[in-house]
Amino acid sequence: MEGNITPNGFWKDAKGNLVAPGNVRESDKLADEVVRELYADARRINEELATFKRNALDDIRTHLALVAEKYGVKLRGRKGNRVLSTFDGTIKITINIQDRIKFGEELVAAEVLINECMAEWTHGANPNLRTIVEKAFQADAEGRISVYRILDLLRLEIDDDRWRRAMAAIKDSVRVIDSKEYVRIYERDESGEYKPLPLNIAAA
């Protein structure tokens, strides 16, 4: 509970106001204590996971470098989609690199072209197609457009010059912001299927 008590013994509420201890309900004090204890444990686990990830990536990179050195080659840059497994095949570890992307101003041209298509196809277009297109350009509460929905449009084969130009504009609009590495561990069950070892609180 000490984390919420100021030097003069008062409690600080969510708005920053100081509240006398006698005016704080016992249930609120207990909730504060439980949350702070769980938070401390979660922070420790989070730091351990971060350390594990760094060590795992370092160990795997070292192993790959040694293998490359054996054959007289040098690895350049980060490489994703690597798989290492135990000799008996019961455990495997994968490294994947996922690019984080955003869209440039070309996306505006793509949207204009697609809207032209939709306006012309209003009476003949498949309603499912209209739903896909309309949802693709809907921004969330923070003004962000779904990358996956936009890229899904590239999978639609439509024989129309404006549509093809729109798809070209979408491709040209893609900007890679950064890349993130993921370490995933799998263990093989009795049926021979690889099951991921959960390393996040939601899947555990």
Rank of each mutant, 00 (worst) to 15 (best):
S179D: 03
A141V: 09
G192K: 04
A125T: 00
K171Y: 00
N128C: 01
R184W: 01
A166L: 05
S191K: 12
R155H: 07
P196W: 02
L153A: 03
E187T: 12
Y182F: 14
T131M: 03
T131E: 04
I177G: 13
V174T: 07
R188A: 03
K180G: 11
A141K: 13
S146W: 07
N128K: 08
E157C: 04
P198R: 09
Y148H: 05
S191T: 04
L151E: 13
R149I: 01
I177N: 15
I185T: 10
K195N: 13
E187K: 08
M118K: 10
W163P: 07
K195G: 05
D189C: 07
A119H: 14
K171Q: 15
F137E: 12
E157M: 02
V183M: 06
R164Y: 00
R164T: 11
R175N: 14
A166S: 01
G192M: 03
Y186H: 07
R175T: 14
I170V: 12
D161C: 01
W121A: 00
S173I: 10
D159Y: 09
P196I: 05
S146V: 08
K195L: 14
P196H: 03
K195F: 06
E142I: 04
Y148G: 04
D152H: 08
Y186L: 04
E120F: 13
E142Q: 14
L151T: 10
Y148N: 08
A169M: 10
M167E: 00
D152N: 12
R188W: 03
D178Q: 09
H123R: 13
D160Y: 06
D161G: 00
R162K: 15
K180L: 11
P127S: 00
S173M: 06
L199D: 08
K135L: 13
